[in-house]
Design a protein around this nucleic acid. Sequence first.
RNA 1: GGGCGCAUAGCUCAGCGGUAGAGCGCCUGCCUUACAAGCAGGAUGUCACUGGUUCGAAUCCGGUUGUGCCCACCA
Length: 882
Amino acid sequence: MTENTQQAPEHRGPHSAAPADLPTQYVPAEVEEELYERWVERGYFEAHAKSEKPPYTIVIPPPNVTGSLHLGHAFQHTLMDALTRRKRMQGYESLWLPGMDHAGIATQNKVEQQLAEEGKSRQDLGREEFVDRVWQWKEEYGGKILGQMRRLGDGVDWSRERFTMDEGLSRAVQTVFKRMYDDGLIYRAERIINWCPRCLTAISDIEVEYQDDDGELVSVRYGEGEESVVVATTRAETMLGDTAIAVHPEDERYAHLVGREIKLPLTDRSIPVVADEHVDPEFGTGAVKVTPAHDPNDFEIGRRHDLPALQMMDERGTLTVHGPFEGLDRFEARSAIVAALREQGRIVSEKRPYVHSVGHCSRCKTTIEPRLSMQWWVKVGPLAQASGDAVRDGRVAIHPPELSSRYFDWVDNMHDWCISRQLWWGHRIPVWYGPDGETRCLGPDEEPPSGEGWHQDPDVLDTWFSSGLWPFSTLGWPEETPDLEKFYSTDVLLTGYDIIFFWVARMMMFGLYARDGVPPFRTVVLTGLVRDEHGKKMSKSFGNVVDPLDWMDAYGSDALRFTLASGANPGTDVPIGEDWVKASRNFANKIWNATRFALLNGATVEGPLPESAEMSAADRWILSRLGAVVAEVDAHYDGFEFARLSDTLRHFAWDEVFDWYVELSKSTFAAGGRPAEVSRRVLGEVLDTTLRLLHPVVPFVTEALWTTLTGGESLVVAEWPKDPGFRDAAAEAEIAAVQRAVTEVRRFRADQGLQPGQRVPARLVPDAEGSPLAAHEEAIRQLLRLQRPDDGFRETASLPVEGAVVALDLSGAIDVEAERKRLAKDLAAAEKELQQTTGKLGNDAFLAKAPEPVVEKIRVRKAKAEEDIARLKEQLDRLPSA
RNA sequence: GGGCGCAUAGCUCAGCGGUAGAGCGCCUGCCUUACAAGCAGGAUGUCACUGGUUCGAAUCCGGUUGUGCCCACCA
């Protein structure tokens, strides 16, 4: 490999590098790291609160410290990076704020796991030492993802990096907590919560994953003779905590029992029969055991009927009721109790398989145990209302709009949020309890109460409590900092649709509350999930998880980024496969080589663009297209249509610029003179602009090439192109005609099996009215590799194209049969077209109702079909017979 | 149980009322001095099924089937 010009010194003038030194292949590894370091050193990504420029802000969804970069991150980061880079180029004070989440339960689990390998538990260390250990762990392993972000090219402002446990962010947490506590929006209450017997903490409703598990439904007879009821249950082990039997108030089968007491099997207790609307008489026997301490429904029934709640398990799910079952695990207890009941003849109908939905801890998959427990809650009513309204009244837009229904479903039906966690890693609840049952909630600047008997609540907050403050806590709130003033509220919040509830809704609640009704962001852009090339979820068990670094190593960051952006249809999942990344790598290489060609041919960005009168049709055509593409790309950016903007750019760059325009310009360059000078300037202009347009998505390769091409400082701070509004419909039509003619002749040659080396003299014969091709004879000849006609020219084949005829001297080499077949096929197609269009135009209803442009289009099609048929027939007639 | 979405070329997906598209893959021919990570040409679809609206439906409406996701206090 030759030496890479990118290692040449910065700030060289235009074309000072010998372009021939550019290697013929783009090698990402040779430019990426160096460019990123340069960008960071020069402070391009740092935003300034004092800037006069209008702000544009995106805060990163803070990844967990425990995590490493996966394709989902790479995907979202690519989009956020593209958005902020473009805005920066457009002259905004563009801030993309990075950081990480302490991820309470996930991180604590991780460190506990590590301890377990040393044969220790967190209790062995004690709280303080354990938390130290987590911090240590965070310093050592946390933030791995931040290094990976550099590889991806993320243009984040590293000077503003935040962590949810930073001092400043902790102040924000405590400030909000205190305010909400004082406002009565945070309270403490004993309720049924979702308890994870492995993590040993409460978790919120959305941290529970329900899945259909196989269970068994057994029917058990409670009581004796007349005074007996049969209940159906899947959770026999909880019967020791039963404090009632409930039936429907209108169920005549049990009317006589309501109010009576029935003896509970395996115990000395008797429990009442109560009538409650909740019971479905159709289900099972129509009678249900009530265990208020271990089932949320039963808890409600208990409240309505003033029943005691009997806690019969400890925090690990072990039975605590005195007797033969004490000390058994909940699942062992289930079979033991069923066996005991069977022995007593109380199992009325045997177990039958029953599939029902069972909750599991989203962290460790352990079956959740509903448990009666004292916890802290956020009263969501007013906050949820405001959160819904902000979207309903348009202050916040959700993109794509289809996904807003999910948001509304959630905020409009939100239950109070359990925010306390029985963990050690996290923001400690700032509440102190006094010796006389006093409770004191402290703000960040308040000293803890001194004196005997005061102690702080041992629990910490749900990790999403601090994430919910992220858009403003990271900007300095509760202080009214210049950052907050300048960059809040943020412009776009881009994240996966899977955390609408966890994060988006909560940021809305907190943001609207803390900032007096100002929403934390104006637009929410929801992305899908990254999946494998067959649309399957990536998971360790499938073995289809891909480390983005592997692909970046193999194909470069740009290739990965471009592939991800190409797949980003709004709100839908993104499949990705290695072959696609490879294809994007090829695109990057194509950009590389096209620029190399331009440099070799003296393309320039110096001086003003030549007058359009001086330009060739090809020059005017490509500039006309360029303007249209700038406008189109802008529209796609504004609509967050990343797949479309990627497609638009790839098609324009590869097909139109790198292929047709470059090929057409070759004959111009070869001819030299003023036209060549003009084209060199136009090619420089088009490449310059195209590289700018591509930069936000593929920052590395574009930067490397653009600085060489233009001698400019950096694309990161270059200006975003504006559509100059130059359009030339005539030039566009002319070049389209050339393209069609060239394709037509190529097709002929391919059908004829003509070797490229074969000598084919040809002449372009414009018809009487002139042809748009007339001016392009030399270019066409070159594109098709046709010779000039010589004295012995003998026309043996002619191709009518675009108002002209390409006469070819094949000197008897023509394959008559192949040509006959081809013409016959074309003729059939033309006849079908004629039939269709004639039919349409003969339809009065169509003529009466269809809009004029549509009718006109059909007329044109019909005329063309007629022409084609006549021409093809003539050609067929002229073919020598075989 | 409720809600949302999707069914278009071998694969992954655009298109969403006026001649069926892209990328990858496939076939054929080319090392044409920017690029073989390339170039040229080509093949491939009753647009799930079924009614309807319309001059005209892949596109709008109803139904069916299949499929994915979300929500729900399914003893």
